[in-house]
């Protein structure tokens, strides 16, 4: 049965079996597109998995009667999902992890080759020794400039003036004042009974049972009141 016939049949009879048959017959689309995005910090298997889900979605949505080929319809869907995956999972990683991890190996091979042959090796020489292409070796060496960490003890001039001398620090006192103001405002929103409960529970560290005895109420009441206070404080503090 041709692809078109399969889709027409699936339209009449949308069973999982037919959908799976369509996906199997067109799986090369997912494989081809996933391969185009390798070497970008995400493993091929992960890309293929994303592409596989996308081709299932595309198969379910494709309208064969619109006259387009399935590959024309599925390609943007699959690429969209792969791009979304990169954006969501890999966006914050500015340097792909495998590049970061590869740098020490490249550096080691570089030094070995330099010592062995007495001349600076090329990217091709290094690539031959490890599992990266020439292009990747060049890119890793380029990106390595971005993962060197500066030392705060590095002297910036001859007088022993270090980087730490010019770094600011957070003044704890400001935070304490700010927190105490917010805390006071939150407590002011409670009535006398509620304030007393907070004082006994969190300043004197009494158990709910002990607080209940102290206030002459049941433990159940203390528990419920505490939950109510907690919700109110959360609201007041979130407004801050």
């Amino acid at each position: 049965m041709s692809n078109e016939q399969l889709f027409l049949e699936y339209k009449k009879n949308p069973t999982i079996e037919l959908r799976n048959k369509i996906v199997e017959d067109n799986y090369y689309i997912a494989e081809t597109l996933a391969k185009k995005f390798v070497n970008r910090g995400v493993e091929y298997d992960d890309l293929l998995q994303v592409a596989s889900f996308a081709i299932i979605k595309a198969a379910e949505r494709f309208n064969v009667e619109a006259g387009n080929k399935f590959s024309t319809f599925a390609t943007p869907t699959i690429i969209g999902e792969i791009k979304k995956y990169f954006r969501d999972k890999a966006y914050t990683i500015r340097i792909p992890r495998r590049y970061y991890e590869a740098y020490p190996a490249i550096k080691r091979v570089y030094e070995e080759l330099l010592n062995k042959h007495g001349k600076v090796p090329t990217a091709k020489d290094i690539a031959k020794e490890i599992k990266y292409s020439e292009e990747e070796v060049i890119e890793i060496l380029e990106s390595s400039k971005n993962f060197n960490i500066l030392s705060i003890n590095e002297e910036l001039d001859d007088d022993g003036f270090t980087r730490s001398d010019v770094l600011g620090t957070a003044e704890k006192g400001y935070i304490d004042v700010e927190n105490s103001e917010i805390y006071q405002k939150a407590l002011d929103s409670l009535n006398a009974m509620e304030r007393k409960l907070i004082k006994l529970r969190y300043e004197e560290n009494l158990s709910q049972k002990e607080v209940a005895e102290n206030l002459g109420v049941s433990q159940m009441y203390v528990s419920r009141l505490e939950r109510k206070i907690y919700q109110r404080l959360k609201l007041v503090l979130s407004e801050e």
């Binding site: 081809t32 597109l33 590959s71 024309t72 390609t75 943007p76 690429i79 791009k83």
Partner: peptide, 11 residues
């Protein structure tokens, strides 16, 4: 091939 144009348009 069949992917080229949709791929370019998507990227």
């Amino acid at each position: 091939n069949e992917f080229t144009r949709p791929l370019l348009e998507a990227l």
